[in-house]
């Protein structure tokens, strides 16, 4: 049971971070379908940093460096979306999809290049970071506390405050609802949208890092992040683009995802004799069902996905 809670919390942290990323981007008016790719790149930045860190550094420094690496790589990668969507009016769905394909491709090519450079026979796309990962974990009895759980919670609270209580957040939302109106009162829509995309890149990258360190101590980049970026988008929609709702939804989805890791520990579930594949499918099926119920009265930002055209009224 404790294991279930532990996994639920860590997967929920991933979903919270990434869904909040999507939330910031969409509130600014840019649909970020590319979160999946951003997660992979963030994970890549973090994993490579962990791999090359020298042993024996204090845990705090390790956390700081690794988090920074993944946040920055996520942000740089998200700029690809930002520039295309904001400056060049590209189709946001198309560019986002390109990001999703580009992320894993870059990761595999890079990791393989690094591995092959080390020894010619090593053609795997796996990064091992068992040692450095320990910095994130604190054992409390049999419960493995991960610092990222706290970070996710803090970011959740911060997002709520930023979006609803600060000038920046309210302006950001204005750009996603009616950019022309925002512009008419002197808000720079382009700047705001860049800010939204960059924040989504930072949070998406961090989410990717948390995802690959949840439970395992090496990652095979060929697998990408298994649709987690899209699950996060489903969480965001179910949470109606509001941070608090996103947090609660993420817990629910995190639990379903955690079940596939730990269902063996529950006699009742083992007795059902379902193949493990069913548990793997569960999060996707649930999110599909959930979307059916909430999409009709969706409260998506009104101007999302529409390139900003100054000339329009």
């Amino acid at each position: 049971m404790l294991l279930l809670i532990q996994y639920t919390l860590i997967f929920a942290s991933v979903l919270i971070l990434v869904a909040l990323g999507g939330c910031f981007s969409e509130h600014s008016g840019v649909i970020n379908i590319g979160l999946e790719g951003i997660m992979v790149i963030g994970a890549l930045g973090g994993a490579l940093t962990m791999r090359y860190l020298t042993a024996g550094m204090p845990a705090f420094v390790v956390i700081l460096l690794v988090v920074l690496a993944s946040v920055i790589s996520g942000m740089i990668f998200s700029l690809l979306l930002g520039v295309a969507a904001i400056k060049f009016n590209a189709d946001q769905t198309l560019v986002g999809t390109a990001l999703n394909l580009l992320g894993p491709a870059i990761a595999v090519v890079l990791v393989r290049a690094v591995n092959t450079a080390e020894s010619v026979d090593n053609v795997s796309s796996t990064v091992v970071y068992g040692q450095a990962k320990k910095a994130f974990l604190v054992n409390m009895g049999s419960f493995e506390f991960n610092w990222f759980m706290l970070i996710a919670l803090l970011i959740l609270i911060a997002s709520y405050i930023v979006l609803y209580k600060t000038r920046f957040g309210l302006r950001l939302c204005a750009c996603g609802e009616h950019p022309q109106a925002a512009d008419s009162v002197g808000i720079n829509v382009y700047k705001m949208r860049y800010a939204g995309v960059l924040i989504s890149g930072a949070l998406g990258g961090l989410g990717g890092l948390v995802y690959i360190t949840a439970g395992v101590s090496e990652w095979k980049f060929e697998n990408g992040v298994a649709g987690f970026g899209f699950l996060a988008l489903a969480v965001m929609i179910f949470g109606q683009w509001r941070p608090i709702n996103i947090g609660l939804t993420a817990l629910l989805f995190g639990m379903f995802r955690a079940l596939s890791n730990v269902y063996m520990g529950f006699d009742a579930l083992v007795a059902l004799k379902l193949p493990s594949t069913i548990y793997n499918m569960l999060p996707y099926i649930i999110s599909l069902i959930v979307l059916v119920f909430v999409s009709k009265k969706s409260r998506a930002p009104k101007a999302e996905g529409v390139p900003y055209d100054k000339g329009l009224r």
Partner: peptide, 22 residues
């Protein structure tokens, strides 16, 4: 190198296709 370099190129091509309209 690895063969996925081609995936990288095709992914970049999709990305660039977003600019064709512009």
């Amino acid at each position: 190198y690895c063969s996925q370099i081609s995936d990288l190129i095709s992914a970049f091509i999709i990305y660039l296709c977003g600019f064709v309209f512009f």
